[in-house]
Design a protein around this nucleic acid. Structure first.
Lengths: 339, 339
DNA sequence: CCCGTCGATGTAATCGATTCCACGAGCACC
DNA sequence: GGTGCTCGTGGAATCGATTACATCGACGGG
């Protein structure tokens, strides 16, 4: 592979001049410039990004450590992150933590070793020393979707409070009174928060959220299945299950189906995170939709702001309720899905 | 960020010795080794992968250029690729081409600029000069899922021939005679091949595949919807639509639903690529399942073989039919889904 | 006792870029 | 005509690692 030296030789100039042409520095003669460009062309030269990064201490690369790529919500997030980053001249390296703190750490470490310019994280846990140290040491960093309290890092996320209130109103209107939730891991903000918001919304209708109706999931489908099995085995099973993410809703669907029961007649179902497939499941699933693409883009903008020395602020965007048929038929739709 | 020099100073040795300890070279005294390791610990030193790559001309990184991350099939592929690569000591940088040749080229270019050790590609088109040149120049490369004919690069893919035969047998047994296909782009091997295989299988039952029953899609949901609309508008519409990938099947579902029709009564549906959601759609969708995880792993192994100087061979694995209810009820299942 | 070998270590070149500094030519101004 | 600028250019240092080569001391064999 041709190097800058080869180009310099071919063009009959020094490497300094070649570098100037490539970085369009003003003081290069028109003659030298054309000769260099010709040499670049004939040699098929492309600058070595590794060498450049070593010298400039910039990689123009962002790291994205995501909880679970197989979760469509995060897939979409990753996609929007890459798009916005590309528009701003950055590449993205994605690390999939698979909801495992050790894998998360592995990815943070290799990304840091590669000297990425900034890190976008959706933390799987409360934060390893590695990550906290990196944040403290000033590595540009932004949390997206989930965050770690007490760490001075901008957070870009959706606020589901009002959408969950709308959901509970919807469920109450349909006559449901025994409402259960499949929660995410307590180590994550979204795992805890969604339970609290749900409990609060229930309170507004004079309803309780008993411990038996709080199932502990891990944001993966299998846990949703198990928790739902547990709910169905209760002496007094819930009428509705609210899954704190889309995969656990899928697991809940599996559990209901395995028993030969029907949604919503035997058990109503709602989920946090809206995804395309929810329109086509049997029945279509009522969900709380996050502005996923907007979150990804805002997170990248905040991170790049930090990297380039600007403030870089937290952003919170509202989620909204999308009513479908999984909680009962006779609803007055709060809002129709347009997808 | 501490460099190897700082460690050397802290430990009271030369940088050479530090480097030897880090790469566990045999001739280092036990004393020096412990002093260096202590220094590494106190400084929190991590070697700079950029500098190391420049010197060794290896990045221990693979590039994966994929047609569309939002397609669950490719998401799963990406995931298995990353897993296997990690097990072999490599990182993966994913580039999402979104079925756009220009984006594909963009990613190939930046990956090459970063001097990745090898490239895994699922080409969106017949191959740009850039990619062909890279292959010819000896960049370790492997095609996965799709490939470019006439290029000397190993191919890792699934063979759907026998599964498609099983599918057609299944459809024929259910009494369907007018079978249509939503094809992928002719610029891709899978786009062309699936049509041919389907036509061949129909031939075995004395059935034809008229041009009117070949819809041109682009592997994205929207095209599946449009093509299906077209089919439904025909004077003599097909009884079955076979979508060449899962997203176009989703689009077909949209089209059927928009007209208030039912699957399979008004139109039967089958798809290439099996995904989790197909179990829960209304109705569950009959599909041809690829051994996706195995493909990803095999592709990585072939690529790493090439990188490390071993042969690196093509692999073809069989796909299999998974019968569900989207083509009709009274089937004798060829194979049950276990998902 | 001397020489060859081996083990531990340091010095310095190297990878491919960027960039500071010096230098010479050309030009304008006084 | 000399002085001082600007402009274009090249030499060389630099980024942080790896590694060939040189060096030096200890040790064993003849």
């Amino acid at each position: 592979m041709a190097s800058i030296k080869d180009v310099a030789a071919e063009a009959g100039v020094s490497v300094a001049t070649v570098s100037r042409v490539l970085n369009d520095h003003p003081s290069v003669s028109a003659d030298a410039r054309t000769r260099v460009l010709a040499a670049v062309e004939t040699l098929g030269y492309r600058p070595n990004a590794v060498a450049r990064s070593l010298r400039t201490d910039q990689t123009h690369t962002l790291g994205l450590v995501i909880s679970d790529v197989m979760n469509p919500y995060f897939t979409e997030l990753a996609r929007s992150v890459e798009e916005e980053a590309r528009a701003l001249g950055y590449s993205v390296i994605i690390g999939n933590a698979d909801e495992r703190p050790d894998l998360q750490d592995h990815h943070v470490r290799t990304l840091l070793d590669r000297r990425i310019d900034g890190l976008l994280v959706s933390p799987t846990d409360g934060g390893s020393p590695l990550m906290l140290d990196a944040a403290r040491a000033g590595t540009p960093m932004v949390f997206v979707d989930r965050w770690i309290p007490g760490v001075d890092v901008p957070v870009v996320r959706a606020d589901g409070r009002s959408a969950v209130r709308d959901l509970v109103a919807h469920l109450h209107r349909l006559g449901h009174r025994r409402l259960a939730i499949i929660a995410g891991p307590a180590a994550t903000t979204t795992g805890r928060e969604r339970v609290e918001v749900f409990r609060e919304a229930l309170g507004a209708y004079g309803l309780e959220l008993p411990d038996a109706y709080i199932g502990q999931g891990d944001f993966q489908a299998e846990s949703g299945r198990l928790v739902t099995e547990g709910f169905l085995d209760l002496a007094d099973p819930p009428e509705v299950v609210f899954a704190a993410d889309n995969l656990m809703a899928l697991g809940a669907l599996d559990a209901v189906r395995a028993r030969g029961l029907r949604v919503p007649d035997d058990l109503a179902l709602a989920a946090f995170d809206d995804i395309r497939w929810f329109v086509h499941t049997d029945p279509p699933i009522t969900a709380i939709a996050q502005p996923t693409g907007e979150l990804g883009r805002a997170a990248v903008r905040a991170l790049v702001d930090r990297i380039e020395g600007r403030p870089g602020e937290s952003v919170t965007l509202p989620a909204r309720l999308v009513v479908r048929r999984s909680c009962g038929e006779n609803s007055t739709p709060v809002q129709r899905s347009t997808t």
